[in-house]
Amino acid sequence: CWLGTCFLGVTFQECSSERFAESYSDWFEKILRNLQQGPSSLQLVTVVSCTSMSDLFARLAKFLNLKKEASSFAGRVVEPLLLLLNENGPVADEAIDLLRTVIKLYPSSVNRHYNKVESTIAAKIMSTEVNVKLSKKFARVLAMLPSVRVSEGTWSLMIQKVLIGINNLLNDAFVGLEEEKKGREIMMLLVPPGNDPPPVLGDQVKLGGNLHVTKKFGVFTVPTISALAHCCCMMLTSYYPVQVTVPGRALIALSRRVLLVDGSLRNKLFPSTTSLHQELICFELPSLHSSFLDLLHATIKGMRR
C-alpha cells in the first residue's frame, strides 16, 4: 500500500494530461480512503498518502476546467486532515503540508471548516509535544488562514487575537522583570476602552498542560511566543488580496517590551520571581530578542513607513 501510493504520487507528476484527466477521480478516492483510516492506519501509509495527495492537488490546479470539482475534493480532505493534525511527528508534519497546499490552491474549500482549523492549529502551536520547527510550520499555516475568508476584518481579527495571545504569555514570563503596567498598556492598544475583546485564539486551549512551572517556561512559553511572533511576521510580509490596517503601534510596543527586558529584577514586590526563573529568562532572552527583532523587521517591511 505504501509503495503503491508512492508510485501514484510520481504518476500524478509525470503522466500525460489525457491520462490524468481520465483517472484523477479514481486516484483521489483511493488516497482519500487511506487518509480516512486516520491514526489507526500505518504511519508510513498515512505520511505518503498526504504527500501524494498534495501532488494530486498541485497537478489538478493546472486544469482550469476542473477547478470546481477540485475544490469539492479539497473540501472532503479537510475533516480527515484535522484528525491527523492531532497526531505528532511525521504524520502531523505531512498533514500540515497538505493543509497548506489545500488553503493555497483551493481556499474556498476550507471556508466551512474555518473555526475548526483555527482551533486545531492554535492547539498544536500551544502544545508541549510539538518541536520548534513543526510549531513554526503550524504558525505559517495559521497566517494563511485569513485568505480563506478574504476581508480586512478577517485579517485584522486574526492578528489581533495572535498579538493578545503573545501579550498574555509575556505577562506570565516577565513577572518582576519589567514594570507591571506594560502588559495593560499594550492590551489597551489592541482593545481600546469601550471595545469588546475578541474570542480567544482557537477557543480556550489549556496552555502548557500539566507541566511543572520551571519546565513549562522553556518547553512551552518561549517556543509558543516565538511561533506566534513568526505567524505575525508571515501575515505582515505575505500578499493579501485586500488592503488592511496594520496595528503598528501595538506591534512596535510589543517588540519594544521584549527588547527592553534584560533579565534584571525590576520589582522587589514579587518574591515568586525566583533566581531560577531569572536564570531561565536570561537563558531564553537571546531567542526571544531574535524573534522580536524579526517581528520589528516584518512590521517595517509590511507597513512600508
Results as ranks from 00 to 15, higher is better:
residue 262 D to Q: 06
residue 2 W to A: 12
residue 128 T to D: 14
residue 22 E to S: 14
residue 169 L to R: 04
residue 69 E to P: 09
residue 212 H to P: 05
residue 199 P to Y: 03
residue 21 A to F: 06
residue 31 I to N: 02
residue 74 A to M: 10
residue 231 C to W: 03
residue 34 N to R: 07
residue 68 K to D: 12
residue 2 W to V: 10
residue 222 V to Q: 02
residue 47 V to A: 05
residue 59 R to V: 03
residue 278 Q to L: 12
residue 121 I to H: 01
residue 54 S to K: 02
residue 271 P to L: 08
residue 96 I to F: 06
residue 13 Q to F: 06
residue 178 E to A: 13
residue 64 L to G: 10
residue 280 L to G: 07
residue 137 K to Q: 03
residue 94 E to P: 11
residue 112 R to T: 15
residue 149 R to P: 00
residue 226 S to A: 11
residue 202 G to K: 00
residue 65 N to P: 05
residue 177 L to P: 05
residue 264 S to G: 11
residue 263 G to Q: 05
residue 198 P to G: 13
residue 171 N to K: 13
residue 214 T to K: 13
residue 42 L to I: 09
residue 171 N to W: 08
residue 18 E to T: 11
residue 75 G to N: 09
residue 37 Q to W: 03
residue 228 L to D: 05
residue 90 P to R: 08
residue 206 K to H: 15
residue 220 F to I: 01
residue 244 V to G: 10
residue 89 G to Q: 09
residue 174 F to L: 12
residue 255 S to D: 00
residue 218 G to D: 14
residue 179 E to P: 07
residue 225 I to F: 07
residue 68 K to Y: 01
residue 99 L to E: 06
residue 176 G to R: 03
residue 73 F to Y: 14
residue 277 H to G: 11
residue 239 Y to E: 12
residue 203 D to Q: 12
residue 106 Y to M: 08
residue 121 I to W: 00
residue 96 I to W: 09
residue 247 P to H: 00
residue 115 N to D: 13
residue 19 R to P: 01
residue 148 V to N: 01
residue 127 S to F: 02
residue 201 L to K: 01
residue 1 C to N: 11
residue 172 D to V: 02
residue 80 P to E: 10
residue 180 E to N: 12
residue 159 I to C: 13
residue 150 V to M: 06
residue 24 Y to N: 10
residue 81 L to Y: 00
residue 190 L to E: 02
residue 34 N to M: 05
